[in-house]
């Protein structure tokens, strides 16, 4: 009996990975980011969830760029999202630090000074 007899290779993923595989990974990462945003109270943790969701969207763009008729436009969109995510993270963290300075807490359910 040899390894080949057990059909080990039959258990492995297929050689060509299509668009669907990448879309499923992106869907899973996006869902994890969504859960993070909904479940966490810490403002920085919510930012982590937002970054996960942006990454999932980027993965979709690059995957469609590879398998679709987009030429290089999908990657360019992904790069724009990258730049905007950097700007967003910087501003959001500045706001978080400011709120922490003023109120000594960053749990978003405790920041209700503007609540009517």
């Amino acid at each position: 009996m040899t390894f080949a007899d057990i059909h080990l290779t039959g258990l492995l993923p297929t050689a060509t990975v299509g668009l669907t595989g990448y879309l499923v990974v992106a869907a899973a990462v996006f869902s994890a980011g969504l859960v993070t945003v909904m479940a966490r109270r810490n403002a920085v943790a919510i930012l982590i969830g937002i970054e996960l969701m942006l990454n999932a969207a980027n993965l979709n763009l690059v995957a469609f760029d590879r398998f679709g008729p987009l030429e290089v436009n999908g990657q360019l969109f992904a790069l724009f999202i990258l730049a905007i995510a950097a700007a967003e993270a910087a501003v959001a963290l500045a706001i978080v630090l400011n709120v922490f300075d003023a109120r000594d807490r960053i749990d978003v359910d405790q920041i209700d000074a503007l609540k009517g």
């Binding site: 810490n42 920085v44 963290l93 630090l97 807490r105």
Partner: peptide, 15 residues
């Protein structure tokens, strides 16, 4: 940046 944010704001109720 995020790790800086976490470490600078560590003293929350849950933490």
């Amino acid at each position: 940046l995020l790790v800086f944010g976490i470490l600078l704001t560590g003293r929350t109720r849950y933490a």
